[in-house]
């Protein structure tokens, strides 16, 4: 057990050090930020999908709630943006609490209901009648507190937090009880797992991570519209990244996001016309030939993936 914790810890430290040092050698901070963002979001999806099997197709709802929660706090209370990012995380948790009843749905029903919820939230935030609170369709302008470096290191902290949460779940009894629910709810509850409580906690942790990511994104980007932070593409990218790497592990989603997001940028930009096509085929191929992600190749070779 202890050895596994150490392995997880070394993964976390490695990632943190890389992102601390990289800006010295590579000047496109936005690329590094987006990469961290997707690493963090992929781990967030991992918490709920990897360990409980609920596919959060509307995950972007939490991301948007975090971005808006944080931006509203900055606009109205003029407190430190760092505190506001945490408040953004709390806003996402609040959203998560409202949506807890959705966890009664199973499989694809949950995924679609969650998607609908994220779109409903988007339409509420963007509605002209909400202008006094959210600026409605006019979008958010945080350029007065814009600080790219601070936003960058905040995102790094969020990423580390997300990895720690996943490492804990992966190696704790709590994680085991979540996996038991994933396997079979009835058996798990017979074995003494408090199903409702466990899955609700995982759900809120997952929401918290997305909210923090959203808050950091809002701060780093400074000017954004509702359609930016509630774009379905965020959900889709995140889920595909996590699946590609392999959920249920710490390293899988990191690997998936790193490989695919880098590819997205370096290959995708040169031949963008084939990109969506390529992505679609990748997803189909994944489901048919590698449903458990890249990590499963290693696991089949009896290699332990942290």
């Amino acid at each position: 057990m202890r050895r596994r914790y150490l392995q997880a810890l070394s993964v976390i430290i490695l990632v943190a050090v890389v992102f601390l040092l990289l800006p010295r050698f590579y000047s496109n901070q936005s690329f590094l930020f987006n990469l961290m963002l997707y690493l963090g979001l992929a781990e967030g999806v991992n918490i709920i999908y990897g360990f409980t099997g609920y596919l959060p197709f509307g995950y972007v709802g939490f991301f948007g709630a975090g971005a808006y929660g944080s931006a509203i706090a900055i606009t109205f209370w003029h407190i430190s943006p760092f505190v506001c990012v945490i408040l953004g995380g709390m806003a996402a948790v609040a959203t998560g609490i409202v949506l807890i009843p959705l966890l009664r749905l199973s499989g694809a029903y949950f995924a679609i209901a969650n998607l609908a919820a994220s779109q409903a939230l988007y339409l509420i935030v963007a509605n002209p009648t909400m202008e006094k609170i959210t600026q409605g369709p006019y979008g958010i302008d945080l350029s007065s507190v814009y600080n790219a470096d601070a936003g960058y290191y905040t995102m790094l902290a969020v990423l580390v937090f997300a990895m720690v949460v996943v490492a804990y779940i992966r190696n704790s009894d709590f994680g085991l009880s979540l996996l038991a629910i994933k396997e079979d709810r009835v058996t798990a509850s017979l074995a003494g797992v408090n199903v409702v409580r466990a899955r609700s906690i995982a759900w809120m942790l997952s929401a918290f991570v997305a909210g923090l990511c959203g808050g950091a994104f809002g701060w780093f980007t400074a000017v954004f519209y509702p359609s930016t932070v509630f774009s379905l593409d965020v959900s889709v990218f995140t889920i595909v990244f996590a699946l590609f790497g392999g959920v249920g592990t710490l390293a899988g989603p990191l690997l998936g996001a790193l490989l695919l997001y880098s590819m997205y940028n370096f290959i995708g930009i040169s031949t963008p016309q084939y990109f969506q096509l390529f992505y679609g085929f990748l997803i189909i191929g994944l489901v048919l030939f590698l449903p458990d992600g890249v990590a499963s190749i290693l696991q089949k070779g009896k290699v332990y993936v942290p």
């Binding site: 936005s30 987006n34 930016t228 965020v234």
Partner: peptide, 21 residues
């Protein structure tokens, strides 16, 4: 010129690319 595919996240990354790289 780069293609942002109409996505703001990608656009932010690419504007940065143009400026800093």
């Amino acid at each position: 010129a780069y293609d942002d595919q109409g996505q703001t996240g990608t656009a932010g990354m690419l504007y940065n690319q143009l400026i800093t790289r």
